[in-house]
Design a protein around this nucleic acid. Structure first.
Lengths: 348, 348
DNA sequence: AAGCGGTGATGAAACGATTCATCGACCCTG
DNA sequence: CAGGGTCGATGAATCGTTTCATCACCGCTT
């Protein structure tokens, strides 16, 4: 018998069933659920008892349909495997959990098509809002979303148009901090490792150039090494390319657009018996938890990752709850340089 | 004017609007959406044109309500910030994305109350299924879920009752592999670092004890260091406790229940000028990407993380699509020892 | 020409909750 | 005691989609 029954889940109880059981109307059951204060304690407890007995669980789909708004929001990130986004996600989760919201998790993987597909999905789900680190300036797509009443907050990127909230960290400043540090340590030939498609990376690069200019150094002092992705593997490849140059022209310091790249570069250099920081100084970006635990503890530019997520989620919930009172804002946090061993040794 | 309009999203078009515009019935529109082949090419294109013009996006809440099943599933993990789960999540995402499913991401944070709250949420959302790494043996809760028709797949843990799928890695074997390696390297006083609540950790510990017994060594050779969590910070504390013992009684090797702990222990030891592996050998678990990039590259027990997620998601989708034909199974992968520098030096 | 099968389109019913206008009961007061 | 006011409960209408029984129509056969 239990073999037969296994896949015959008894149909879930509805408000109607609860109402009948408690001897009240469906409206009253709904009131108990949503505005318990306006219903008499006696009836309320009767209804609650019925709910208990029937194991009633309210159907959010129906609720959503009727009310016109649901309890979910979307989070679209570039790469789940990147601890930076993991920490941001943790901040988002922290905030949404206490608001009783559900987060639909989307990993665009840096792929435009996947991003599009996920945005379509989120639109069909009629999510309350979307937190997104867009691949490129997707302002047109995002605008379309907003037109349909979906709130949008741009994450880790300052939005170009002012009619959408964004929460980011000043990448330009971060790049400056890193380069300034290396310049002060005496380096004059520096490599910048990173892809060129992401706004964040471009800004860090520009910041680096700025620091160079401020120090009265020409742009030739910074050689750019383009990578296809911001991963450990891409970093290892980059190391090979850096070492491909003759020792004279070779950079004495490397600034990576993120820590994963830096860890990869570190591995690549070490593997070829190039010492860090003695032969080459290294600076990463993000200051992920593992930066300090690396083979050579990594100097890095720290970003308030969890705070980023929390702030973004708070802004989104705020807008979703009360769109009219909401003023869009561009929050920009300041990064901070954390100096560790990988950049410590000064040149002679 | 644009200032006024900002928050007046025109009400989304419904199938009804599309039907009117295309001059057909709502049923036909639905057919175009769901079974395009049974409708005449002429009408179909008329409907599609109307959809285009109105910017119609189907409302999944209504769809869900009517069909009785939605397109979302829940993923409940112990800790987002742990790269192990991140990779598992990536595997899940990979599989669900191609099935057009949405994943609601839940971080239980090792907190029973949060886990419960999330399971309630998922139940209200009427998710199609739940992938979960339960905190303890939540078989009763999971059973309740299943009774309501929600599929469940247990992740990274072999389920105790056979009426639910599970996908895990043989932790007992993993523990054995690690200890066998240390024993073969000559170690006789070994510390096991890890909490005692998680099944996974207990299994790894038992495996370690087993290896000891197999080698004819007494259980006293393995001293257990309990930690409140499986994080880098907890690892640092554990290092202090290990070093608290007099040198005679101090372990010469440490086996950590996961890599985060191991990285923490590594930092703690290094910070106190204890060398790895010369003074103390170290073995971690999970072989996260950063294990190889650590200050001292970490010997670790590798698990097929992404595969874990993919398999679990596949199983879940299979069961969700066709519960009757589905046979529950307990998939158990085999772990693999990856030897790196942290355990290399043999004792004299 | 009547009958028949088949193809496509139709439109009302359902899904399960919330909302809101309405109603009944009850209390208080003049 | 009539009447006004309050409070709580009611139940029908509604959200947007899918489903399904029904129907109209066309072409073919007998």
């Amino acid at each position: 018998m239990e073999l037969r029954d296994r896949h015959l889940p008894k149909p879930a109880a509805s408000v109607r069933d609860v109402a009948i059981r408690a001897g009240v109307s469906v409206g009253t059951v709904s009131n108990v659920l949503n505005r318990p204060d306006i219903v008499t304690p006696t009836t309320r407890s009767r209804v609650l008892a019925a709910i208990q007995e029937l194991g009633f669980v309210r159907n959010d789909a129906a609720r959503h349909l009727r009310r016109g708004r649901g309890r979910t929001l979307g989070l679209v990130v570039l790469d789940v495997a990147n601890p930076f986004f993991t920490d941001v996600a943790k901040g988002v989760e922290y905030t949404t959990a206490r608001a009783g919201m559900a987060v639909i998790f989307c990993n665009s993987d840096g792929d435009r098509a996947k991003e599009d597909a996920y945005l379509d999905l989120l639109e069909e789900q009629r999510v309350r809002g979307v937190l997104i680190t867009p691949i490129d300036d997707a302002s047109e797509r995002l605008h379309r979303l907003r037109e349909r009443g979906v709130c949008v907050v741009v994450l880790d990127r300052t939005s170009t148009n002012a009619d959408v909230c964004s929460v980011s960290v000043d990448d330009h400043l971060g790049g400056q901090l890193a380069l300034r540090h290396l310049i002060e340590s005496g380096h004059r030939r520096i490599a910048f490792v990173g892809g060129s498609t992401l706004q964040q990376v471009r800004d860090r690069h520009r910041g680096a150039q700025q620091a160079l200019a401020d120090a009265g150094l020409g742009p030739r002092s910074l050689q750019r090494i383009d990578t296809p992705a911001l991963t450990v593997a891409a970093g290892r490849d980059a190391a090979a390319r850096i070492l491909g140059l003759p020792r004279q022209a070779r950079a004495t310091a490397v600034f990576c657009a993120n820590d994963l790249l830096a860890l990869g570069v570190l591995q690549g250099l070490t593997h070829r018996r190039v010492r860090v920081p003695d032969d080459v100084a290294l600076v990463g970006y993000d200051d992920i938890d593992f930066a300090g635990a690396a083979a050579v503890p990594l100097t890095s530019v720290r970003q308030p990752r969890q705070r980023l997520g929390q702030t973004a989620a708070t802004l989104l919930l705020e807008e979703a709850d009360n769109a009219d009172a909401h003023r869009h804002q561009q929050v920009v946090f300041e990064p901070e340089l954390v100096v560790r061993e990988s950049s410590l040794r000064r040149l002679p």
